[in-house]
Design a binder for these strands. Structure first.
Length: 429
DNA sequence: GTCTACATCTGTC
DNA sequence: CTAACGGACAGATGTAGAC
């Protein structure tokens, strides 16, 4: 047994579904294959997922839909409203499959996860079997990037996607050194995980344009100018693994639910309805996470894209005993709304953020807390969660959340809930 | 001044 | 017919009041 066997260099794989939302839609409607397709954000606001054909038309990530309409009509672009229930369900299927293909998995986002391939012999072949398996069992196309750090695995995944020569799997560990160096010199820094538009611009000023430039730049200078995060990124690019695989995701610091309104809100009742509904959603998320909050941040603002009087307010409502109870949380949230409300503005968006979050199991019972009342409320919340799960979200809602819902979002091109609702499945007769 | 809590801004995916 | 631009996070920075 050698030292390397005892302390093998880590190997990370990053598996990522291609054009995830569009690909989900295509699984259930193959007529969309080969066509330019985009999926729009909530409120049919902007393009958040694009098929390769749509990308080829020059449609950019985040482009507002109303600016795309002409182009879309001209080229027969299919635009779909987002269907998060469907995507969440498909995500679960993919992640469950992938969890079985490695000893350890970190679910990084709805459409990507890291796998620990440390000690695997033929990673390239294994990457292909991952691809095959996901395609076979879910219908979704994925690409796999493999390397010795998470940042490099992300980059390898980028190569697997953009460069057809890799056939969907890129293992940096398998590339000849010359090819690898040439490859890095051919990729723009903005492709690196954590280097976005702003950072790229600032790096360009320093003459750092390619991934290779960044990797070979002076660490001390970068640290002084951009902080520890960028420094860590550079170390990772050099093959020094600084980011561990995080199997269990940490308790999140905040749970946010916020939406833009279909119609602007001008009365406090409207804002209260919307905020009640968001609070109920966020509270359900707390319960499903097994956590509680000790404070709620309530915020609302006007439409910053519009040339009208602007306002943006927020307030933190704190309370002594942490809770996950929808009713209590709604009461606190309503206090917040009263605090921030100012007459005479047209509000476009509002939200709540559950804050100061702690795990539910280990919280001390307060002196003023009646354990029987608490248990009763827990059962009521649980019942509400079950009904909403079983019969669809919104089956049971608080009266305070309103019946009219002028503020609710627009969603004109939604695909059916293929995986969760029989009654929306198209049936051949 | 400087500590703190809260508000606001920035950046990324 | 016209107007119309997401959401969820983390982390940095700004600011007003208490001392």
């Amino acid at each position: 047994m050698t030292n390397r066997d005892l302390h093998p260099k880590p190997v990370f794989a990053l598996v990522d579904v291609n054009n995830f939302y569009v690909s989900c839609e295509r699984v259930f409607d193959p007529r969309l294959l080969g066509k330019p397709v985009i999926v729009l954000s909530n409120n049919d606001g902007c393009a958040v997922s694009r098929s390769n054909e749509a990308k080829a038309l020059g449609i950019k990530m985040g482009a507002p839909w109303f600016q795309l309409k002409d182009l879309a009509r001209q080229h027969g672009v299919v635009a779909l409203s987002s269907n998060y229930t469907l995507y969440g369900d498909m995500s679960r299927r993919v992640m469950t499959l992938l969890a079985d293909m490695a000893p350890r998995q970190e679910i990084y986002s709805i459409d990507e996860c890291f796998l620990d391939l440390t000690g695997s012999r033929d990673c390239l072949t294994y990457g292909q079997s991952i691809r095959y398996r996901v395609r076979r069992w879910t219908g979704l196309p994925v690409c796999v990037g493999i390397a010795s750090t998470k940042t490099l695995a992300k980059l390898a995944n980028h190569c697997a996607k953009k460069r057809p020569g890799f056939d969907g799997v890129c293992d940096f560990g398998d590339l000849p050194v010359d090819d690898y160096e040439r490859l890095l010199a051919d990729i723009h820094v903005s492709a690196v995980w954590g280097i976005g538009r702003k950072l790229s611009e600032r790096l360009a000023v320093m003459g750092i344009d390619t991934v290779r430039d960044l990797r070979d730049a002076d660490t001390a200078t970068l640290r002084a100018r951009f902080g520890v995060v960028v420094e860590r990124t550079v170390r990772e690019l050099r093959g020094e693994s600084c980011l561990e695989l995080e199997e269990l995701q940490a308790v999140r610091q905040g749970v946010t639910t916020s939406r833009s309104f279909g119609e602007e809100v001008t009365r406090i009742e409207g804002l209260k309805e919307a905020v009640s509904s968001y609070t109920a959603t966020a509270a359900a998320k707390l319960r499903s996470d097994g956590t509680e909050a000790s404070a709620i941040l309530v915020f609302a603002h006007t439409n910053p894209f519009k040339n009208t009087p602007q306002i943006s307010r927020q307030t933190l409502v704190s309370f002594a005993t942490p809770t996950d109870d929808t009713f209590a949380l709604c009461r606190y949230a309503m206090q917040g709304v009263s605090r921030i409300w100012v007459d005479g503005y047209r509000y476009k968006k509002a939200g709540v953020m559950m804050s100061q979050i702690t795990p539910k199991n280990r919280h001390q019972a307060s002196l003023f807390e009646n354990p029987f009342e608490t248990a009763k409320r827990d059962r009521l919340n649980t019942t509400m969660d079950r009904l909403n799960l079983r019969y669809g979200r919104g089956t049971l809602a608080l009266a305070g959340a309103g019946i009219q819902k002028d503020w609710k979002l627009k969603s004109e091109h939604r695909s059916p809930a293929y995986t969760t609702r029989w009654d929306e499945l198209p049936v051949a007769r």
